Amino acid sequence: MVFMALASRAEAVDAARAALEAPLGASAALRCLSTPARDVTLTMPVTGQIQELAVMEGDRVKPGDLLLRVDDRLADIEYKRRKMIANDASELKAAKARLRSVSQRLKAAMELLQSTHSISQDEVDELALERVLANSDVTRLLHEQSVQAIEARRAKLEKESHRLTAPFDGTVVEILTEQGATIHADQPLIRLVDTRTGVLECSLESDGDADLKVGGRMTIGFPAHNPTTMRHGVVSFVSPLQDSASHLRKIKIRFDNADGAVLLGMAGIILANVQSPAEEARVGARSEASPREKPARVVQQ
């Protein structure tokens, strides 16, 4: 099946109406269904009791908005404890001060040994050993401080894992739990969809998709809803595989639905390719020399 550009919006509407009126068995070249570009069922990695359910079905949310919170009191206490330990640098400061003091004493002792010999070599060696030990203490405490900082970050992430937030702009369409309920890790909780962008998924006869390429523009319609509801979409996926039973290939066409005119979930059809200006000029030149080609046949879903 090769799709041709429709001459006008009126022809596109007529084609959509024809598809709606065509008998179901007329052709099975295309079977299309519209879906949201993003449709996810959210879970959490923790087990606990829901302390706050912050949304209702139908609510619009933005990225980062709180959806629900599981009891996080113990996680909050652990985070504060780890943070306090990580921020306590008193022992490290004392160790650094001792290292500076020993280093100064060692330097003075070495100068005395060389200039006046009023101090023995054993005393200098003892100070040198003390400096090595003081330096080791500083190194150990710096390492412990890094470990405590990592533990504090881990405790913070553990606390944050008790909060479920929206990953993108969308609408809450289903809540699968309730406030006060005890949930388990990875349990489905909230379904969130973004209907501003739709995807028309179609199954296409393999011998008729030669002109379909990723990035190509298509005109699509939704005659079962309204013959005048049409969109220009972009082919986002053309399957490299053919279904062994039906001999059809799957394609996906993304289209803008910011106005919400398309009720996602309804069936749709491909009306025509959207040609570039250069292609339209070539088609126009041919049409002057020959009768206008009829619009591509629209297939009933």
Rank of each mutant, 00 (worst) to 15 (best):
residue 2 V to A: 02
residue 3 F to K: 00
residue 8 S to N: 13
residue 10 A to R: 08
residue 11 E to H: 04
residue 12 A to G: 11
residue 15 A to G: 10
residue 15 A to M: 06
residue 15 A to V: 07
residue 22 A to Q: 07
residue 25 G to M: 11
residue 25 G to L: 13
residue 26 A to G: 12
residue 32 C to D: 06
residue 39 D to N: 15
residue 42 L to E: 15
residue 45 P to F: 08
residue 51 Q to F: 03
residue 52 E to K: 09
residue 53 L to I: 00
residue 61 V to W: 05
residue 62 K to D: 04
residue 69 R to D: 04
residue 69 R to H: 08
residue 69 R to N: 08
residue 72 D to E: 13
residue 78 E to Y: 00
residue 79 Y to Q: 00
residue 80 K to A: 05
residue 82 R to Y: 05
residue 84 M to R: 14
residue 84 M to E: 15
residue 84 M to S: 15
residue 86 A to Y: 06
residue 86 A to L: 06
residue 88 D to N: 15
residue 90 S to K: 00
residue 97 A to S: 06
residue 97 A to Q: 00
residue 104 Q to A: 15
residue 116 T to V: 10
residue 118 S to W: 03
residue 126 E to S: 12
residue 130 E to A: 15
residue 130 E to I: 01
residue 136 S to H: 06
residue 137 D to Q: 12
residue 140 R to I: 04
residue 146 S to I: 08
residue 146 S to D: 14
residue 148 Q to Y: 04
residue 153 R to P: 02
residue 154 R to I: 01
residue 155 A to V: 00
residue 160 E to T: 11
residue 161 S to H: 05
residue 168 F to R: 08
residue 169 D to T: 06
residue 172 V to M: 02
residue 173 V to L: 06
residue 175 I to N: 07
residue 178 E to C: 12
residue 179 Q to A: 15
residue 181 A to S: 14
residue 185 A to S: 14
residue 188 P to Y: 07
residue 189 L to K: 02
residue 198 G to L: 08
residue 202 C to H: 01
residue 205 E to D: 15
residue 206 S to V: 13
residue 209 D to W: 04
residue 211 D to T: 06
residue 215 G to Q: 00
residue 215 G to A: 07
residue 222 F to S: 02
residue 222 F to C: 10
residue 223 P to D: 07
residue 227 P to L: 11
residue 228 T to Q: 12
residue 232 H to T: 15
residue 235 V to E: 05
residue 237 F to Q: 05
residue 238 V to Q: 10
residue 242 Q to A: 09
residue 246 S to I: 03
residue 253 I to L: 04
residue 253 I to G: 06
residue 254 R to Q: 15
residue 255 F to G: 01
residue 255 F to I: 10
residue 257 N to V: 05
residue 259 D to H: 11
residue 265 G to N: 06
residue 268 G to Y: 10
residue 270 I to G: 01
residue 270 I to S: 04
residue 275 Q to W: 07
residue 278 A to D: 15
residue 283 V to M: 07
residue 283 V to G: 02
residue 286 R to C: 01
residue 289 A to Q: 12
residue 290 S to W: 04
residue 294 K to Q: 12
residue 295 P to M: 08
residue 298 V to Y: 04
residue 300 Q to T: 11
residue 300 Q to V: 02
residue 301 Q to H: 07
